[in-house]
Computed example of a mutant assay.
Amino acid sequence: MATKTEVPGIAIITGAASGMGRATALAFAVAGATGFALLDLNEAGLAETKTLVSKAHPSARVETYKCDVTQESSVISAYTSAKEAFSRIDYAVHCAGIVTFQGPSADCTLEAFDHQNNVNYRGLWLCAREALRNMRTQSLDTEAYPDADIPPHRAQRGSIVNISSGLALHSQSGIPAYCGAKAGVTAITRSDALDYATQRVRVNSVLPGVVDSPMTNPSPEIRQWMYDNPVKKATPMRRFGLPEEIADVCVFLSGNKASFVTGACWSVDGGFCAGYSYE
């Protein structure tokens, strides 16, 4: 029997002030999530995302939390507050991330290396750890949402989606710290999936290709370089991905329709990781 909504529960989303994080929040709203904990350092962006989510799903409760994922206390505070506000967390999508072009390793400063890893790898792990701590002991969603008619074999206590990158599999020159951090995300995703499978918590990652978002394309000049190089030369579909295309996969992986999917790393990249196209 199909569920009445794709995701009948509470979603916590990091990096929700813009880009893929905002698109993911909106995708969850359209799919029927009833509660949202939106996290980011950018409070103005969070307020805008909250307005958009409320318009898309007027009856949903939306809470925002200023959160610095590089600080353990900030992450713990945000996740604890979200759990207190909603009593449970069903879906966690970790979108917070940065990319800086610091050059090859010999030219990369320790400060730049640490910053990339503190946000993209360590910061994501801090968030995933708090999500797991909350999810592993809560009731199954079949008990929490009896009206959703979730089949017993599809029941879960929670689902986590970590945003990695196609560069976790196929590196790009000039950004070794970013590539390494994203490879680390895929590794901890698989390890967490193994550790919590029997507790009915699923953990997966999404590996976007070149997405037209503020993080990837902060200026017209960088956007043009991205289009002329990784898009035209290495993406078989020859276009940027859109944030909502990533978000739709995150919602699918979060919900019960993906109930037998855990430890997976899903490429959403226009064919980038499939190989080079000569056309």
Rank of each mutant, 00 (worst) to 15 (best):
A2T: 15
A2S: 14
T3F: 11
K4S: 14
K4G: 09
E6G: 08
V7L: 07
T14V: 13
A17K: 05
G19D: 03
M20H: 03
G32S: 12
L38T: 12
L39W: 05
L39M: 11
D40S: 12
L41C: 15
E43V: 15
E43I: 15
A44M: 11
L46H: 08
A47T: 13
K50L: 10
T51E: 14
T51K: 13
P58Y: 13
R61I: 11
T64V: 15
Y65T: 11
C67T: 13
C67Q: 03
D68M: 10
Q71G: 08
S74I: 13
V75S: 03
I76P: 03
S81G: 15
S81L: 09
A82Q: 00
D90W: 09
H94Q: 08
G97T: 03
I98F: 06
I98S: 01
I98W: 04
V99A: 04
V99H: 02
F101K: 03
S105F: 12
S105C: 13
A106K: 06
T109K: 06
L110K: 08
A112H: 11
N117I: 09
N118V: 10
V119T: 12
N120D: 12
N120C: 09
R122V: 12
R122C: 04
L124Q: 06
L132V: 15
R133N: 08
T137M: 03
S139K: 15
E143L: 15
A144L: 14
D147F: 09
D149S: 11
I150L: 02
P152V: 06
R154D: 01
L167F: 03
A168I: 02
L169H: 01
I175Y: 00
G180N: 02
A181R: 01
A181F: 04
V185N: 00
V185F: 00
T186Y: 01
I188T: 10
S191Q: 07
S191W: 07
D192I: 12
L194T: 07
D195Y: 08
A197E: 05
T198L: 14
V201I: 15
R202D: 02
R202V: 13
V203C: 05
N204K: 12
S205K: 04
P208L: 11
S213H: 08
I222S: 05
W225S: 04
M226W: 10
Y227D: 09
N229A: 07
P230W: 13
K233C: 11
R239V: 12
G241R: 01
L242D: 01
E244R: 05
A247L: 07
C250N: 06
S254Y: 03
K257I: 06
A258K: 02
A258T: 10
F260Q: 06
V261Y: 08
T262D: 02
T262E: 05
A264K: 05
C265I: 04
S267T: 08
V268E: 00
D269H: 04
G270W: 05
F272K: 01
F272W: 07
C273R: 04
S277F: 10
E279L: 13
